[in-house]
Design a protein around this nucleic acid. Sequence first.
DNA 1: CTTGCTCCTGACGCAGCGGGAGGTCCGTAC
DNA 2: GTACGGACCTCCCGCTGCGTCAGGAGCAAG
Lengths: 249, 249
Amino acid sequence: MDDPLPIGELAARTGLTVRALHHYEDLGLLSPTRTVAGHRRYGPREVERVQQIRSLQTLGVSLREIGTVLEAPDFDPAALVARQRAALAAEQARLSDLLGRLDALERLLRQRAQTGTPIPPTDFLQTLRAMQDIEQHYSPDQLAQLADRRRQLGEETIRAVEAEWPRLFEQVGQAMDAGADPASPEARALIDRWDELVAMFTNHDPGITQSLGNVWKQSGGSASQMAGLDPDRMRELFAYAQRVRDARG
Amino acid sequence: MDDPLPIGELAARTGLTVRALHHYEDLGLLSPTRTVAGHRRYGPREVERVQQIRSLQTLGVSLREIGTVLEAPDFDPAALVARQRAALAAEQARLSDLLGRLDALERLLRQRAQTGTPIPPTDFLQTLRAMQDIEQHYSPDQLAQLADRRRQLGEETIRAVEAEWPRLFEQVGQAMDAGADPASPEARALIDRWDELVAMFTNHDPGITQSLGNVWKQSGGSASQMAGLDPDRMRELFAYAQRVRDARG
DNA sequence: CTTGCTCCTGACGCAGCGGGAGGTCCGTAC
DNA sequence: GTACGGACCTCCCGCTGCGTCAGGAGCAAG
């Protein structure tokens, strides 16, 4: 029962592959005895080491580090755990960063598809770049805040607002084209709604609202790219909106 | 201004390294023109391609896949995004799995350190293995539920309960040693509290409570390892607790 | 012409194995 | 004795995204 196992047996019992066991040995994690013919035999001690290796792997510890741990029986478990946590947390942060961008992209694609101005594949890369240009205007903190805020608002609200923006731009455009007085109640109502939508997502944070303003100014091209509007038209809309706000005093 | 750039210039402007640009070229993502001496020159087209590569990288897309995307201008953006999401989500799940285990370990280390029965480094690997043995008794679903429940309960409560368990075991042990009648109110109170603590973490889910029972039975050794108690003593405590429950009817 | 900077082309290294090539060994059936 | 199917052996390349030399050539300024 406790006879030393050939490598195939050990592999079958541990769920590892023969190749993996070879690899562990190459790294010095295992050193089974050998038969005269050079075939590996794993005694109970080695079998246990394999289990320990697996255990440490389920914590995401690297094989090299596992090597040092197994060779130093007086290592500090708490320190090991802390190091691992830090490393994995960093990885997770990186991932959620990527996922955040994907979410934003998905929202944009969906919105543009629903509002009848889908992004042609040839423009996709430009749009993507526009998104990153815009992202650069926010600090990581601000981006995190915006993401939080979106979670608070929920899927429903976001979709509703996404659908409302193009309509609002359209209405403001019509008012502007019709020469509506920036001080008129109609114009004011539209821009109030505009600012309300903005405030909803910025959660009334002045820093973020400020950054958003910079985005409009410095990346007008990017913003219009994402909205699917002509950059000049977009600039006009923004200038008009500003006049309305100024008229309000 | 739009003269073709030497590689060092392009690297400086894009924030990439010369080596990275070489690498992209090896993979066929770029093909700058060359001077007579063989030095690379990047025109506006190539510069834009570099930006596109960077953009796609911020979504976590692999360089090979970027290659196929850049060569097929009529690819499906939505499909690309969906694939990326799936891949990253899988990665994230794997990571949070590892982090979950690390959390559990950290809790255990902390608790054992606080209750005056720290885990000696030499026993750490055994304890780790015991944890995984126990983990095997739960389905992934159940583990997720337990993690959720812990989040609901909050740090405070968890620490309090962690501190209570050893005391409770101690009291039950004393009652048992004193030959307290399993039907006595004292014994009943202790075991009621015991079951209450269990229910708090299992959130009264019968499936999980059942699995927990299996853990005690089949992995008594592992459980005692984690609690820092003698396995035989542990088994006695559990048998006594069961007698108390039976006496209650 | 020399100095000093930029550029070139290999080629190894990392992490954790997968997978294959080409050869040896083992147990069993004939 | 031998022939055959597995199991085992030892290299060695491949993947991912570059970092990092090594050794040599081009280029502008003094």
